[in-house]
């Protein structure tokens, strides 16, 4: 696995960066962290579990819906494994 990213820091989107790590690390920088920080973390943890991957995930969220964060993570993970 290499470092890879997907998404943007445009409104309604999220930039998701994944990198190798032996343990799960999730860092979230969100404009709606107080209200949705836990939900974003849950999306990340659930998606990683689905894909059976442990790594570090950095999320720069600009108000993205759950499915957008999930999609950006899936793309970043695929890119990390392919690139």
């Amino acid at each position: 696995m290499k470092i890879a990213q997907a998404g943007t820091i445009e409104s309604n989107d999220a930039l998701v960066i994944v990198s190798p790590s032996d343990k799960l690390i999730v860092e979230i920088d969100s404009i709606v962290f107080d209200k949705f920080g836990d939900a974003i973390n849950q999306v990340i943890v659930d998606t990683l579990k689905e894909h059976q991957i442990t790594c570090k995930v950095v999320v720069k969220d600009k108000g993205a819906y759950d499915y957008t964060i999930k999609a950006r993570l899936i793309t970043a993970l695929r890119r990390a494994q392919n690139e």
């Binding site: 997907a6 998404g7 819906y65 499915y67 957008t68 999609a71 950006r72 899936i74 793309t75 695929r78």
Partner: peptide, 14 residues
């Protein structure tokens, strides 16, 4: 192209 496809799939699931 890959991220657009992933985004649409995730969207259409919901």
């Amino acid at each position: 192209k890959d991220s657009a496809k992933d985004l649409l799939k995730a969207y259409l699931e919901t």
